[in-house]
Write a protein that binds this DNA or RNA. Structure first.
Lengths: 172, 172
DNA sequence: GAAGATTGATGAATCAATCTTT
DNA sequence: AAAGATTGATTCATCAATCTTC
C-alpha cells in the first residue's frame, strides 16, 4: 500500500509553485531548495566521517588552514578572511580546537592586539588522518562523477564571482 | 598596489590539495567547498530579501508549507518530514512564527498528542508579500540563467537520490 | 511500549557592544 | 579614531532526555 516511492519533494514543490504563482522564477526556487538540501546532506556525511577524529567540518577547515600555513600559525582575523566567516565564529572554532589540544593560542611578537592560532603536533596528526578519511570517501560526494563535480564547481563559481568572492585577495 | 583581483580561493585550495595529497578526490573537495560557500551566500541574500517581512528563510519555508496545505494547518511532526528537518527544529521555528502572529498552535481533534500549526490571516499576507519579493529577485540566484539553474538542480538531485530523499513520501 | 511534542544541551553562524592596543 | 579580539545575545540545526497521550 502506498504510492510508488519515486516522489521527489522538490519536483513536487516546483509543480505547486508554477500552479500558484506561474512565475519565471520557478527554476531558481528549485535550484535554491536543492542547494539547501544538499548542503544539509553533505554536512551530515562530512561530520560523520570526521567524528572518529573528534572534528566537525568547520573545525576541520580551520585546522587545515593552519596545517597549510608557512609557520603553522595565523592571526585569528586572517583566518576569518580566508575561511570567509565572521571573526566571532573564528573565536568559537579556535576555542573548541584549543580545548581538544589541536591548536594553541599564542601572542604576536610585534602587535600585542593580535592573537595567533598555532597548530600542535596532535593537531597535525588529526589533520592528516581526517584528510585521508575524507579523500577516501571523496568528501561524501557520491554518486557524482568527476565531470559532474567539475560542472557543479564551475556553475557555483559564477555565483561566487557575483557575490564578490574574488575581491578579498589583494595582497597589501 | 596588490595582485590582480582574479584570485579564486577555491581554485587556490584545489592547487594546494593536489600538491599536498595528489589525490583523485580533488574535484570532490572543490565541489563540496563550493556548495558550502554558495549556501552561505544564498542564505545571506534570502534573509536580506525577507527581512522587511520579519522572516528568515527557514521560517519562510515553514510558513509556505502551511500556506499550501489544504486546511491551512499541519501537525508539527508532519512539517518536520516535509521540510526534512529535526522535530525540535520545527518546535523552534513555530515558536518564532507564533510570537510574530503568523501562526497559531491548535490542538488536534481526535489525537491529543499532536499539535497543529495553523497559518493566520497575517501569516497569509506575509507569505504572499515575501513570495513576491523572492520571485522578483529570482531567489537570489544571480547571475545564473535558466539552463544553469536546471543543470544545477539535476546534478544535486542525484545526490539527494543517493541520500534517500525520495523514500519518505509513501502515503500510508 | 510507542508516538508526538517539548525542554535542555551543544555546535555553528551572525550581530551589537566592549576592551585592549595601536 | 581604528584595528584585533572577546563576550553576550539571537537564530538554526542536531541530540538526549522527559512528558503526555495513544
Amino acid at each position: 500500500v502506498g504510492k510508488p516511492s519515486t516522489f521527489d519533494p522538490i519536483a513536487e514543490a516546483s509543480r505547486q509553485w508554477d500552479r500558484h504563482w506561474g512565475t519565471a522564477a520557478t527554476p531558481s526556487m528549485s535550484a535554491v531548495t536543492s542547494v539547501m538540501r544538499v548542503h544539509q546532506i553533505l554536512m551530515a556525511r562530512l561530520n560523520g566521517l570526521l567524528r572518529p577524529y573528534g572534528l566537525t567540518f568547520p573545525r576541520y577547515e580551520a585546522l587545515m588552514l593552519l596545517y597549510y600555513s608557512r609557520r603553522g600559525s595565523l592571526p585569528l582575523g586572517k583566518m576569518g578572511q580566508r575561511l570567509q566567516v565572521h571573526r566571532t565564529s573564528v573565536t568559537n572554532t579556535i576555542d573548541g580546537l584549543e580545548r581538544q589540544g589541536y591548536v594553541e593560542r599564542q601572542s604576536h611578537d610585534s602587535d600585542r592586539r593580535t592573537t595567533l592560532a598555532a597548530i600542535t603536533k596532535r593537531g597535525r596528526q588529526a589533520a592528516e588522518e581526517a584528510t585521508a578519511a575524507l579523500n577516501e570517501d571523496r568528501f561524501g560526494t557520491a554518486p557524482l562523477r568527476q565531470g559532474e563535480l567539475e560542472g557543479l564547481t564551475e556553475t557555483l563559481r559564477r555565483v561566487r564571482i557575483d557575490a564578490g568572492d574574488f575581491e578579498n585577495a589583494v595582497s597589501s
